[in-house]
Nucleic acid binder design. Structure first.
Length: 336
DNA sequence: AGACCTTTGAAGCGA
DNA sequence: TCGCTTCAAAGGTCT
């Protein structure tokens, strides 16, 4: 998770980076001239700079005030970035009049109780399981490896809406995050939303009340979101497992440049996510049993403490800034 | 009703 | 640093 220093949040240099990328988006051929590795490296230098140290309890640095957040949002929009699209995942870019733009992120990033499933049992690493679906039948009807000459961020018209859009997004109204989160009103609404079903046991109730900020989508997830409707239409399949298998194959059939586009989008997602939720950690979405550890207090929503005097340097692992585009293990072995 | 399946990638943790 | 686990989307299927 890229961590940004307080000075970087909303800083001009950061905005310039966005603008540069926006210009790049406007010139789709630019990335085609670069090797994916170069793209990845440049993106790392652009945004993955480790942040200044802070404490374990409050690993994130101070964040910009609400005015800075609003200014950031406006400048991002003004730069032509995050145009309405299925890719848009954050509230203050939501345009309610466009029905298919409902964000999976609720007003504060929370998710409806029905919008999330939690594995109760450990995943037995599904990647090791054999494919149950015979893709050959599907492939007869549907080309599995078409190249996509240009990545469009426009959604398919029929993309279904399966997430609740908060009413805070009224026509003509833009939702801006408060510093370090959202307004108390938004939190009050979402604090009542459970991340699990209402039938969960009592020990989970405390956790259920915690607003659920979802992880930013990675490159493949963004690709899936865009291509899923096409696969459904082309292949006449509905099962997500089958669709995802097809999309996985298509993903590998993409050129480096095409994949780089999604990696770039994903990087922007992560960067924006880190700005919107500076205190959020992916660990926050883990089951309670995995998050309650000595020395790590449960994460709470709301503006992070501005009292930097209590901050202490984070551990090396908490500030880990891995290469954002490291290929999966099977690609490391030359599968790509 | 809710977990499972299925994909890739990011994040975080322990060793 | 490596390996493992979890979660992110999605919707039909299964328990």
């Amino acid at each position: 998770m890229p961590q940004l220093s307080g000075d970087d949040l909303g800083a001009n240099d950061e905005l310039l980076a966005f603008k540069d990328e926006g210009e790049q988006e406007g010139k789709p051929n630019v990335s085609s001239e670069r090797d994916l590795d170069d793209v990845k490296s440049s993106l790392v230098n652009e945004s993955e700079t480790p942040s200044s140290p802070d404490s374990e309890a409050d690993r994130r640095p101070p964040h910009p005030d609400a005015e800075s957040s609003a200014r950031l949002a406006l400048q991002l929009q003004g730069a032509g970035l995050y145009q309405p699209s299925p890719y848009v995942s954050y509230p203050f870019f939501m345009i309610p009049d466009l029905g298919n733009l409902c964000s999976p992120y609720l007003a504060n990033g929370a998710l409806t109780s029905s919008g999330r499933t939690v594995r109760r049992r450990p995943t037995t690493s599904s990647m090791n399981k054999s494919v149950n679906v015979n893709l050959s039948n599907v492939q007869n009807r549907c080309s599995v490896s078409p190249a996509y000459p240009h990545v469009s961020v426009q959604t398919a018209a029929g993309r279904r809406i399966n997430r609740v859009c908060f009413s805070v997004c009224r026509p003509g109204q833009t939702m801006y995050p408060m510093a370090g989160g959202f307004s108390p009103a938004a939190l009050a609404v979402n604090a009542s939303m459970s991340r699990r079903s209402s039938s969960s046991s009592d020990p989970d109730k405390e956790e259920e009340r915690k607003p659920h900020i979802k992880k930013p989508l990675n490159a493949f997830m963004l690709y899936m979101r865009e291509e899923r409707p096409k696969v459904v239409a082309q292949c006449n399949v509905k099962e997500s497992a089958t669709i995802n298998q097809i999309l996985g194959q298509r993903w590998h059939s993409l050129s480096k440049d095409q994949q780089a586009t999604y990696y770039d989008l994903a990087r922007k997602e992560r960067l924006l996510h880190s700005k919107l939720y500076p205190n959020w950690s992916a660990r926050d979405n883990y089951p309670l049993s995995l998050t309650t550890k000595p020395g790590r207090p449960p994460h709470t929503m709301g503006p992070p403490s501005t009292d930097t005097s209590t901050s202490s340097p984070p551990s090396a692992s908490s500030r880990r800034s891995p290469h954002p585009f490291l290929p999966p293990s099977h690609l490391k072995q030359g599968a790509l």
